[in-house]
Design a protein around this nucleic acid. Sequence first.
RNA 1: GGCCCUGUGGUCAAGCGGUUAAGACGGAGCCCUCUCAAGGCUCAAUCCCGGGUUCGAUUCCCGGCAGGGUCACCA
Length: 554
Amino acid sequence: MKEEENFMDLEKLASALIPDEDLLDPDKYEEIYPPREMPKGAQVTRLAPSPTGFIHLGNLYSALADERAAHTSGGIFYLRIEDTDDKRKVDGAVESVIRSLDYFGIKFDEGAEIQSRLNIYGPYYQRQRAKIYRAFAKRLIAQGYAYPCFCTAEELDRVREAQNAEKLTTGYYGKFAKCRNLSEEEIYSNLKAGKPFVIRLKSQGDISNKITFRDAIKGEIAVTENDQDVVLLKSDGIPTYHFAHAIDDHFMRTTLVIRGEEWLSSLPIHLELHKVLGFKPPVYAHTCSLMKAENGGKRKLSKRKDPELSLDYYRKAGYYPAAVVKYLMTLLNSDFEEWQLKNPGADYREFKFKVEKMGKSGALFDLDKLNDISKTEISTLSAEECYAFLNSWVDEFGSASDKQHFADGAYIIKVLNLVMGTAGKKRRKDIERAEQGIRLLDYFFDDTFKPRYDFRFGDETVNTVLEEFAKVYDPDDDNQTWFAKVKEIAPKVGFAAETGEYKKNPEAYKGSVSDVAEILRIAVTGSANSPDLCTIMGILGKERTIKRLAAAIR
RNA sequence: GGCCCUGUGGUCAAGCGGUUAAGACGGAGCCCUCUCAAGGCUCAAUCCCGGGUUCGAUUCCCGGCAGGGUCACCA
């Protein structure tokens, strides 16, 4: 330690570096933001995005964990905007974050742009909290826990390169922390020269000291103390994430910080900052990231490469929002799925979510699973609810013809009742998401009915079936009568009237009733597969049915 | 490369020293059936490797290996 440092007037230095006159005594903030009055065990969590407006599946995953942790414990979930990096700012981003999460049923109790009487821990934009950070930075300087650094970006780059060349840990620490030991004269002359500076932490840590830390998800984690003199205040006077995190989560009285595991490596910094600031650190829960399979391996879902990371992707594809949430719940707590199976129809909010049960390893995003959950979820809807959901998708993303079709709600609901099956009974699960489900309905409308007529039988057979059935079709027939008529046609084209009979001696026939039905089905729906044909004909009506039968004649 | 995290079927994963190693998605097959879907039944498929500790390791310890993350005046 240098002689000068011992005698340096730190109070004076603090005032020279941070001359702001309107700063409060840091201790005042303890009164301004008093501990929250909450039931025992209640958790305060937060989502703290940067305002790029791009909110992705990983954010939703994390937000869901935050929201559940707060609301299953009677706590608070709030929104804070980390806008300390000007470059990341996008107009309307905050509203977009709120809207995106709201679409998936996740709501904040307080925070940026949230109407709430609970908003006493704000402001919730970090840029608006500059005075708080500066007050604490000033105090740290006065206490000798922080100092100004005048190194330029170029100097820092050079040091980093040298460190890399020598295979040393990169960063500003130990003997590389040049400005740590600047003399009083040097500092003041730099200041007088108007050199830009940042405020760095004067780290008290030693990397040879191992500390164990308890993470709510990962359990015991062995780390070393921090020895990096990290930047607290950037040259524009705005704090870095690390500094803002310590101060904000303390004064917003966050009890549980859920964040991605990419933060794990900076945990020692945060621990030291809390210590130096005299704060008790919150409980941390570091979540694994969502992964994607790629040539044999897996990698973190990437914003640039993977469209399925974007929440808009799910909206455009027409996934049922509750299904996306439920899929995420299965990743969050793997026993959720079993609970859901035992409690069919129960709201996911009734499930007892536990942070400790969250997965420790990065899960591969499984589209098959999401699809299954989504179609199951949609199958529980009534035809009316399903119509409302599909219609809202059509409003936003549908074609002109979709819009025209959906204008006739009564007709769509009739179709939906068929496509979905009887409510409360065993239901069909044909509709996976709006975009795909709506295409399933195309053959119910003349303008989108595009048959390919892929008959597996000769023209003569096909024509006979079509003509004979047209002669006897009566829309008033019930299902059995209808089918009896189909059976009657079979012998006329050399088919067996009973499938069982055909199976017994297939050589005796050219086909069976199934094949008669198939010919009719292709003519009427354009496809060899469809729900109950008799009902479909009923919905189309006699006129259209007969017209389609005639149109299919070779 | 240093440091940290993770490692059970193809995927998500239960499991906490003795289990026929759950369940779900996906796959295969059968039944049902006018086709498809749904449903029912059945099947195939897993403890990364090597050392310990122990009467006994998927489970505990050590060492490898593999995957991931991180090393900014970005968050």
